[in-house]
């Protein structure tokens, strides 16, 4: 057929975008060699001396790196767990509401934080919510508890990070669950009601099994985020007093690489993260394809 000539036009459509990807995604990958060099900016990648695995050996020797990997995983895994469970509970509750306008108003309110940036939210939280004069300490004062310097406390930092992340995302997370709940056959609920099933029994024996596949799929796909503790959030909320519990891989790479000019070390740490994340994502996709028949394309 004349479709032969189309091939060329298809290529033409892809080429501009592919060029952007080659320049801004592929070229930096060659920069990975910096991880094996003592990089000197003035001499460039070609002229900097090679040091083999020194940067990696150094990375495993300094106590910081153990701490940042631990912090990253603890924060990321807590977020993954909470962001699976809280939206599920919220969607189940929301599904019980029969008043259309009420449901819609609630949805409008809980989806909103997802669209606000962490810069803005961190400013709000740090200055007006968790500060000494903030809303939370006002509340504590009211019930007679001593004020707490939340943002400088290694005890409170991680819970605050996880809680504010859940606060931002749980509403948006309910969308997927609500979509899954609507696809459960109404006939099942009707016959359950006739059989005298209680509300809790309906949720336990119809809704949950009906959306189990979705829950498993979301859980599997979030495996790729085990090393993603969210730079934007933590960078805007942490300070030097909470590095012990709050410093993550991405913030460490930023500080050591762009602030302290330890290019080799920062690239090595970043490379570790890229490689492990890549493996995790490929694993999660193939698990999802195998057990949930999920295809991204």
């Amino acid at each position: 057929m004349k479709q032969k000539g189309f091939q060329l036009q298809y290529h033409m459509m892809l080429i501009p975008g592919i060029c952007f990807l080659i320049v801004f995604s592929i070229l930096p990958m060659f920069g990975i060699v910096i991880a094996f060099q003592k990089f000197i900016p003035a001499r460039g990648i070609a002229g900097s001396p090679w040091v083999g695995l020194d940067n990696f050996i150094y990375m495993f020797q300094i106590p910081d790196s153990r701490q940042i990997f631990l912090n990253t995983i603890v924060i990321a895994v807590s977020k993954i767990a909470m962001n699976l469970v809280v939206p599920l509970l919220f969607a189940l509750l929301l599904n019980e509401v029969r008043l259309k306008w009420f449901k819609r108003t609630i949805q409008t309110m809980v989806y909103l934080p997802h669209f606000l940036s962490w810069v803005i939210l961190a400013s709000m939280f740090k200055v007006n919510i968790f500060s000494l004069e903030g809303v939370i300490n006002r509340g504590l004062e009211w019930i007679g508890v001593e004020p707490i310097l939340f943002m400088a406390s290694n005890f409170w930092f991680r819970p605050i990070i996880v809680a504010t992340d859940v606060w931002k995302e749980f509403g948006f997370g309910t969308i997927v669950y609500l979509a899954a709940i609507t696809s459960v056959s109404p006939v099942l609920y009707e016959s359950a009601v006739i059989d005298g099933a209680t509300r809790v029994q309906r949720i336990r024996y119809i809704t949950l099994p009906g959306i189990a596949a979705t829950i498993v799929l979301l859980g599997t796909l979030s495996l790729g985020n085990v090393l993603n503790a969210n730079f934007d959030q933590i960078f805007n909320m942490y300070n030097s007093l909470v590095l012990e519990t709050g410093d993550i891989i991405d913030t460490y790479v930023y500080r050591s690489g762009l602030m302290a000019a330890k290019y080799g070390l920062a690239t090595a740490v970043g490379l570790m993260k890229s490689v492990v994340s890549f493996i995790l994502i490929v694993m999660s996709y193939s698990l999802a394809a195998k057990f949930a028949n999920y295809r991204i394309f």
Binding site: P28, M29, Y263, G270, K273
Partner: peptide, 19 residues
Amino acid sequence: WFILFTMLFSGGLIPWYIL
């Protein structure tokens, strides 16, 4: 596969910044 690879793997912050 090419675009998928660019989505899943990255050279990291420092090489990107230098570029």
